[in-house]
Amino acid sequence: MKITVLSGGVGGARFLRGVREHARGIPEAEITAVVNTGDDMWLTSLRIAPDLDSIMYTLAGENDEERGWGRVGETERVSGELRAYGIGWPWFTLGDLDIGTHLARTDLLRSGMPLSAVTDRITSRWDLGVHLIPATDDEVETHVTVEGGELHFQEWWTKHRATVPALGFVQHYVENSTPAPGVLAAIADADVVLIAPSNPVVSIGTILGIPGIRAAVAATSARVVGVSPIIAGAVVRGMADACLTAIGVETSAEAVGLHYGARSAGGILDAWLIDETDAAAVPALEAAGIAARAVPLWMRDPATSAQLAADALAL
Rank of each mutant, 00 (worst) to 15 (best):
V295E: 04
E28P: 01
A219M: 09
A280E: 15
W69C: 05
A186E: 14
W89H: 11
S116G: 08
P165M: 03
S305G: 11
A84V: 11
A287V: 08
G12P: 08
Q307E: 14
V225N: 01
D40I: 11
S264N: 03
M41T: 10
P134I: 06
I3K: 00
Q171V: 09
R237M: 09
P90N: 07
A218D: 04
R300Q: 10
A23Q: 08
W42Y: 05
R67N: 06
A294M: 05
S198G: 03
S305H: 10
E147S: 14
D270L: 05
E141L: 09
W89P: 01
K159R: 15
L109M: 12
A218C: 04
D311A: 04
T93L: 10
T163E: 10
A13W: 01
T136A: 00
G182D: 08
A232Q: 14
I122G: 00
S198V: 01
W89V: 08
P283F: 05
R67G: 02
V235D: 03
L244P: 10
P283C: 05
V170N: 10
T32Q: 06
S252M: 07
F92C: 09
G267V: 07
R300D: 15
K159Y: 12
P200E: 03
D241I: 10
L109Y: 04
D137W: 11
W157A: 05
L208Q: 13
I122A: 00
A288R: 04
D138H: 13
G233F: 07
P90A: 06
M113Y: 09
N176Q: 13
G8K: 02
I290T: 02
S221A: 14
